[in-house]
Design a protein around this nucleic acid. Structure first.
Lengths: 222, 222
DNA sequence: GGAATGAATTTTGAATTCATAATAACTTTG
DNA sequence: CAAAGTTATTATGAATTCAAAATTCATTCC
């Protein structure tokens, strides 16, 4: 039996709105129709409006006074800025992880890394992506810094709707795997400075393969 | 004539609650009395509760389902974690600033630095603190990374209620001024890596002089 | 035909109301 | 008198209501 959901209604609504945005049902710049979503979710306007306010403070939604909420437009600059930030946070996470990581956590990550290599050899891209994410989450978690985790997941939520191009070239992929090899090595040696550096650079590669759907160029803002 | 502020009521309320927290009128861990604040601010519960939800997502307030809001307790670990994060962000800001800063911005910061030195020589601590803050804000702004600014100011808001000990020793003070000298030098040479490093270390010094009033040790959590 | 003006409609912002959960106060009983 | 149970009170969560602002639509006038 699943755990009793004592969550707040507004958070539930917020998450469902985020889903709609991620799924693209609410597109970048779209107006968010209060009444319609209320009917759809079967809630009154009160929790829905609370959700919108929280989403605005989280950066996914824009609130125009007396003119409702809309899905925040992502500009190319915003995405780049966000990636810079995430890179810095991953870098810090790497440094902290090397200080605080437990043997158990290190073993878990190494196991994930083995899986990663397997998926790379078999050219199983979706599986590779999933394990890749798990490894990065593992390092973040190993930093044992709650505020860092929170901030990272907020940033990552903001750019979730950016779709990555499927044409991840072999060269990119190989580079990524080499990065991961180096990460594990640095982690093993608990070389925080180095792990931090690798993680920073690693992320900037990821940006290069991002195909910026839904992302508007800075000059043509709505 | 100043621009008409068409701000949302909930944001107004949120800021006033933050003031109460900062002023210590609402202490760490205190329950936040809805009805009382409504009367005090002359608003209904709707905008007040919206404000609380936003403050919760910003990390200043804690929401217990069916049991109201309270001022989030700061543990020593949380403050340390937050300072680590702010250090990383300042470091990134330094790197980015060296890439993007304009000549005008650099001139402004150098002027502030001259003021800082003056206040140091005259032992004007409050003025020194103010100019110090302006310099750091200047570097942050010179990064030209909106998301970074937003995150940093959120973090800084969270730890605003931590009071710094007045007994800033001469040694600390001198070290801080030397750091600032090095910063300006790195900025002038646009040596991002170096400026980043200085900023990171600089902040960790600040933490050492923080006397942790209102901060609860991790073991004795409420 | 098109811009401008002024209702009618819709949408938003905020107060109020209502139902339910939590807390406090009061019995009752051992 | 203390512990357990019961009722009263208060606080919270969410729906509803009401007022103000924005938008739409029709009409007038050039």
């Amino acid at each position: 039996m699943s755990k009793i959901q004592h969550r707040n209604l507004y958070r539930e609504v917020a998450d469902r709105i985020l889903d709609l945005i991620e799924q693209g049902e609410l597109a970048s710049g779209d107006r968010i129709p209060e009444r319609e979503l209320c009917e759809r979710f079967g809630v009154s306007r009160t929790p829905l409006r609370e959700a919108l306010k929280v989403l605005a403070s989280e950066g996914s939604v824009e609130l125009l006074p007396n003119r409702g909420a809309r899905v925040r437009q992502l500009t190319l600059k915003m995405v780049k800025d966000t990636y810079d930030l995430m890179g810095a946070l991953e870098g810090l996470a790497g440094e902290l992880a090397c200080q605080h990581i437990t043997d158990e956590e290190i073993a878990d990550i190494r196991e994930l890394h083995e899986n990663l290599l397997g998926h790379y050899r078999n050219r199983e891209l979706p599986d590779y992506f999933q394990v890749n994410r798990q490894i990065h989450e593992g390092i973040l978690a190993a930093s044992h810094n709650e505020a860092l985790l929170e901030m990272y997941s907020n940033l990552s939520q903001r750019v979730k709707r950016v779709r990555y191009s499927k044409q991840m070239t072999d060269a990119f992929w190989q580079q990524a795997v080499e990065d991961h090899e180096a990460m594990i090595e640095a982690l093993k040696q608990r070389d925080g400075r180095r792990l931090g550096q690798i993680l920073r650079d690693h992320l900037s590669n990821k940006l290069e393969v991002a195909s910026m759907d839904d992302v508007v160029d800075d000059r043509q803002r709505a």
